[in-house]
């Protein structure tokens, strides 16, 4: 077993490294753009407009109440179909699906963050003559962001693991590398152990860093 592990690492080391980078790339893109979508959707959810509110509610509910794998399939087949001119890569289609998925979860995170900002902050800003959007951008969102930063990072950790589902479409993430290597070497357990350790080390480290961040945010107040 140990001999096999060493052999895999020396022969396929770069595959694992590339896989890790693709996984992190997918997670980072999803969370970064998902954040922007999440913020917009959260504001829609909290707006007085019934239409905006409705659209946002349908979006978050549909995403949250269907499996991610289904969403991946959906975008994988749908996007090239409706936008053939763009010649979208597999990676792009999967990234878009993950972005939509993380946007929905992020909007709920943002919504609670916005609601956790004291109403008095809004009143003070409005009483100075700031409009409601100026108040949202300069007063409420910065404070909400601070409140939800740890939850956002946790979402990043979760999405890092969820990207493994993208291997269904061979997009080059860690899990895809497992399938490739396993297919070439007829080994199953050994490559699984290696990518398992990589996933664990990465997410465990991130979780610990988040805990540090959380403590720092608390003492800063």
């Amino acid at each position: 077993m140990v001999a096999n592990l060493t052999r895999l690492l020396t022969k396929y080391g770069m595959n694992f490294v590339n896989g890790l980078f693709t996984t992190l790339e997918l997670a980072l893109i999803s969370v970064a753009i998902g954040c922007i979508i999440g913020a917009i959707v959260a504001i829609m959810r909290l707006s007085k407009s019934k239409i905006l509110n409705g659209i946002a509610a349908v979006y978050t509910e549909v995403i949250r109440d269907t499996p991610l794998l289904l969403q991946l399939y959906f975008f994988y087949f749908l996007l090239p179909d409706i936008l053939p001119a763009l010649r979208l890569s597999k990676f792009t289609c999967i990234a878009v699906a993950l972005i939509f998925n993380s946007g929905a979860y992020m909007s709920e995170v943002f919504r609670s963050g916005i609601q956790s900002v004291d109403r008095g902050q809004t009143e003070a800003a409005r009483s100075l003559g700031l409009s409601s959007s100026q108040t949202m951008i300069r007063i409420v969102l910065p404070q909400a962001l601070r409140n939800v930063l740890p939850a956002m990072c946790n979402e990043f950790v979760a999405i890092t693991k969820e990207t493994s589902l993208a291997s269904t479409f061979y997009v080059g993430d860690l899990m895809t590398q497992y399938q490739t290597i396993s297919g070439k070497t007829y080994m199953v357990i050994e490559p699984l152990i290696i990518i398992g350790v990589i996933y664990f080390v990465v997410t465990f480290t991130m979780s610990k860093l988040i805990a540090v961040l959380e403590r720092k945010l608390k003492t800063d107040e």
Binding site: G120, E123, A124, R126, S127, L128, G129, I139, Q143
Partner: peptide, 30 residues
């Protein structure tokens, strides 16, 4: 509202800004 200042029971200072930014925010922004 720009012409009507208001002071609240619980101060409602903007905690994410420095003291001077709290004061200059509205006049500059508006």
């Amino acid at each position: 509202r720009q012409k009507m200042g208001m002071v609240f029971q619980h101060f409602n200072i903007f905690p994410h800004m420095s003291v001077i930014e709290n004061i200059t925010l509205a006049p500059v922004m508006l």
